[in-house]
């Protein structure tokens, strides 16, 4: 099937795209198109105008420096995972991207699109939150920064205003090397996460100074496994603390069940995937 009629505008700069969104309240940003176009084909979405960002050069590219990685919102999954320094600084990123969709989704989907869309079963949303990321946003009210903790609101819902554009994603480089990992149980038909777990651990001198464990797929939005994080904080990062954290990884989370995967099954997967992700992080 094909979408309902709409107007198309190819933006050449962020300023122009912001202006278009301001003038046309029914307009939507078109990024990689791999969530929006399928939704439009099924007529689940019918925007009156698309503002295409794919040729806005200033939204592309990855740089590492000043203690952060700065990633243009229109950087595709493939461009991101193969960008110099990314796999070393954030091993969870190529791990997650390798299991997103398929070859074509990885070639076209963008980090900005993934975060703005906030699919409850998306992969990179959890990694972004675990890594302590934030986004820079341009909109009619001027540029601002939104902390990752304030970005995701609910299923497919973020704190972005309708005319906001994510321009850059900022990820802090860990002081103590790169102990992050992502593990996923993919739905056999859709490939999306039934459950995914992203972890980022800082443990200078063997003691955990920062533990971030974020669950996707099971919850309405990417959510910290706060009980497991607390169990690791201040402890030696070893087999005992790991086992203690894993045993309570699903505690306190509001877990969704559906006919494919019950709440109970997802709780179990959260534990299994938390263990695998923490073991991978520990080996780094």
């Amino acid at each position: 099937m094909f979408p309902t009629s709409f107007e198309y505008h190819r933006a050449t700069s962020v300023a122009e795209a912001v202006a278009m969104l301001g003038e046309h309240p029914d307009a939507k940003i078109l990024a990689g198109g791999h969530s929006l176009i399928p939704a439009m084909k099924l007529r689940l979405a019918a925007p009156a105008m698309l503002v295409d960002l794919t040729r806005v050069a200033e939204l592309k590219g990855v740089t590492l420096g000043d203690g952060v990685a700065t990633i243009g919102a229109m950087t595709t999954y493939d461009e991101l995972r193969f960008a110099e320094g990314i796999a070393d600084a954030f091993p969870a990123i190529p791990e997650a991207i390798n299991v997103i969709g398929d070859q074509q989704v990885r070639a076209h989907g963008t980090i900005g699109g993934a975060l703005a869309h906030n699919d409850p079963a998306a992969d990179l949303t959890a990694v972004f939150l675990a890594l302590g990321g934030r986004v820079e946003v341009a909109g009619s009210s001027g540029p601002r920064t939104i902390d990752g903790e304030d970005l995701f609101v609910d299923l497919w819902t973020t704190s972005l205003e309708p005319d906001d554009i994510i321009t850059r994603v900022i990820l802090p480089l860990a002081a103590d090397g790169a102990r992050s990992a992502y593990r996923k149980h993919a739905h056999p038909a859709s490939g999306y996460a039934v459950v995914g777990v992203a972890v980022a651990i800082e443990a200078a001198g063997g003691v955990v100074s920062k533990a971030s464990i974020v669950v996707t797929g099971a919850t309405s939005k990417p959510t910290h496994a706060a009980a497991a994080e607390a169990a690791l904080a201040g402890k030696a990062f070893d087999a005992d603390s790991l086992a203690a954290a894993v045993s309570i990884a699903a505690d306190g989370l509001e877990i969704n069940g559906d006919p494919y995967a019950s709440e109970e099954y997802r709780s179990q997967l959260i534990k299994v995937l938390t263990r695998r992700a923490l073991e991978a992080a520990m080996s780094r």
Binding site: M1, G33, I37, P38, K41, L42, H108, S190
Partner: peptide, 23 residues
Amino acid sequence: DTSQCGACVVTVDGVTTKSCTKL
């Protein structure tokens, strides 16, 4: 209808592309 089957794959400027998911 759902961008999942890959019967439509072509390359656009060298990038592998589902031509049903590009305008």
